[in-house]
Write a protein that binds this DNA or RNA. Structure first.
Length: 559
RNA sequence: GCCCCCGUAGCUCAGUGGAUAGAGCACGCGCCUCCUAAGCGCGGUGUCGCAGGUUCGACUCCUGCCGGGGGCGCCA
């Protein structure tokens, strides 16, 4: 059952002006307070039942209030229903007490008309700013794939997820910065340079180097490569590789505000400064010739090395300095989207963050599970060093940009994703993404058919004033629309873009049912309300377009 | 051994305490004198991995177990 609850106090609250359900929620809260004699402390739910006989909306409030009132739940439901009836007046058709103590609400056309009117008025902004006064300054790091090769499908999932998450957070009202951490230092960069050097001289890369064909192509693009040493080659190679990576990301509709270089932390002395900062707090100690960070007292299972006995700084030391930098920029929240292979990193980074003086919940480390690519049931292997992988560019060329984004976003980030290329490719006729796009395009066609004059009349019409009785499909479609703000809240708070794919599909299905049952242009001929139906179609179109935009998928005017 | 994720329909998966657990795909049948048939309607399957516990109520929360995937470097 879909929940339409106001979020808990810690979460962003819907901006009441933007949410047509606010009046309903307020009535429920007031009615409950009336019974209780004081505002209810329990969380009152306003649910949208799947079964029509359980009403348009339903609340379990009586079950929750019964204990405090020392009364039977059904008796409480009876009184709550009456109190609600007095408050909602003509917006409520009737209420019923059902089951163990639910109160089910059946709303009148008047309610649906004024609700749609509010949605139509919000227009393109419907559902925005739901974070309200809980809006935060957020710094989100994602992808951060090593610049030693092209972006793979694993990176593609990170890119789609991180980008959509940022779009949703921003739409909800947060100030979001997007950042890509470039691992352009350390042992793998040395091996990358050596591999380039070998290819430039026409030799095979070292055993532990990079063997992909792109390494040779890269070497060929560097002027005088054969005469350069591995360090210079690595630097030039990374530069070129990053250009490619950026171009691929932009093609995938993923934009970063900043690419942050690990190397700059070394050369700029930021790591040394971070280590000093931590030494002052007595978090750092020397042992066995190495320098350690005492992460074990902050939740990690062992302490971690910052500087090796060889004198070299570890990757972890650089990451600590990077997070010190993030912290110093003063965001309310830092989010790192990490691969499943980095989960061992979580505890030590959290510990380091707190050692640096960060608030425990100021750093959020999200772990992204793997993508398995299959091709007609056969697993496609992915390894950069072996050079055997499917790149993001190849994926886009293969199944299409919109399908790629949709498929990668369809599942929760913390579950392994199986993507069958053969299926994604062949499915194009029945693909959910095209279904949603089709609904959008179909509405565009209807609105074109309606023409300027009718659209203008609909925009000026007083929808709430009443008119022809509404069809069940019209009411159901308005109800789906009304769920959108809560859906944005949930997607944002739970960092769950995949919810919007499900919502978009549901809204598109609701429109198809409406389209089947109700003629829009010329509605009066069948006893319908043309202005209402045009406004409804426009609102659904705008909301579908918004969903698709948040998912990074195109919303076509025709197909 | 320890840690993380997962186990729901034939397949891929939604569903973080509410009523008879859903979608897409796949399969079958039917539907274009009507705003896009990339569409619509009808047809069915579930020991929600197993066992306990908490609760008026558990797919959902807790404990243990079983199964699958991933991770546990002075690599990055």
């Amino acid at each position: 059952m879909a929940s339409l609850d106001p979020p808990p106090p810690s979460a962003p609250a819907p901006a009441t002006g933007a949410d047509p359900l606010a009046g309903l929620r307020l009535a429920l809260a007031e009615a409950a307070a009336e019974l209780h004699g004081a505002p209810a402390t329990v969380e009152l739910r306003l649910d949208r039942p799947k079964r029509p006989e359980f009403g348009d909306f339903s609340s379990n409030a009586p079950l929750l209030l019964a204990a405090g009132l020392d009364e039977q739940p059904r008796a409480v439901a009876e009184r709550l229903g009456e109190a609600l009836g007095r408050r909602l007046g003509p917006d409520l058709d009737r209420h019923e007490v059902a089951g163990p103590g639910f109160v089910n609400l059946f709303l009148s056309d008047r309610f649906w008309r004024s609700a749609l009117s509010a949605v139509a008025e919000a227009g393109r902004n419907f559902g925005s700013g739901v974070a309200g006064t809980d809006a935060e300054r957020m710094l989100v790091e994602f992808v951060s794939a090593n610049p030693t090769g092209p972006l793979t499908v694993a990176a593609a999932r990170h890119a789609a997820y991180g980008d959509s998450l940022c779009r949703i957070l921003a739409f909800a009202g947060h100030a979001v910065e997007r950042e890509y951490y470039v691992n352009d230092a350390g042992g793998q960069i040395r091996r990358f340079g050596e591999s380039l050097a070998a290819r430039a001289r026409g030799q095979a890369p070292p055993e532990d180097g990079y063997h992909g064909a792109y390494v040779g192509e890269l070497a060929a693009r560097i002027a005088g490569a054969a005469k350069l040493d591995p360090d210079e080659l690595a630097a030039r190679g990374i530069e070129l590789m990053l250009e490619t990576v950026r171009a691929t990301l932009e093609r995938f509709r993923v934009h970063f505000d900043r690419f942050f270089s690990e190397r700059s932390l070394h050369s700029g002395g930021a790591i040394e400064r971070a280590l000093e900062l931590l030494s002052d707090g007595e978090h750092v100690y020397a042992s066995e010739g190495a320098t350690w960070l005492r992460t074990s007292v902050l939740g990690d299972d062992k302490d971690r090395v910052l500087r090796r006995s060889s004198g070299e700084l570890t990757y972890f030391a650089a990451d600590v300095a990077y997070h010190a930098d993030k912290l110093s920029r003063g965001p309310d929240r830092v989010i790192d989207v990490l691969g499943a292979d980095h989960h061992g990193h979580v505890a030590r980074m959290q510990a380091a963050w707190q050692a640096l003086g960060g608030a425990p919940d100021g750093l959020e480390l999200l772990i992204m599970q793997l993508v398995n690519l299959t091709e007609g049931g056969r697993r496609v292997a992915m390894s950069k060093r072996e050079g055997e992988f499917v790149t993001l560019d190849e994926l886009i060329d293969d199944i299409g940009l919109d399908a790629a984004r949709w498929f990668l976003l369809q599942r929760s980030h913390d579950t392994t994703l199986d993507l069958d290329l053969a299926l994604a490719r062949e499915q194009t006729q029945e693909n959910p993404v095209y279904y949603v796009q089709y609904a959008h395009a179909r509405i565009a066609a209807i609105l074109r058919r309606a023409g300027e004059e009718r659209l203008g009349a609909a925009a000026r019409a007083e929808l709430a004033a009443g008119g022809a009785p509404l069809h069940a499909s019209e009411r159901a479609l308005v109800r789906s629309l009304l769920e959108f703000p809560a859906e944005i809240v949930t997607s944002a708070v739970r960092r769950a873009p995949h919810r919007l794919t499900a919502y978009a599909l549901e809204l598109a299905q609701g429109f198809s049912a409406f389209y089947r049952d109700c003629r829009v242009v010329g509605a009066e001929e069948e006893g319908g309300d043309e202005a209402f139906r045009i406004a409804l179609s426009r609102s659904v179109q705008a909301t579908l377009a918004r969903c698709l935009d948040l998912l990074g998928v195109e919303a076509p005017e025709s197909m």
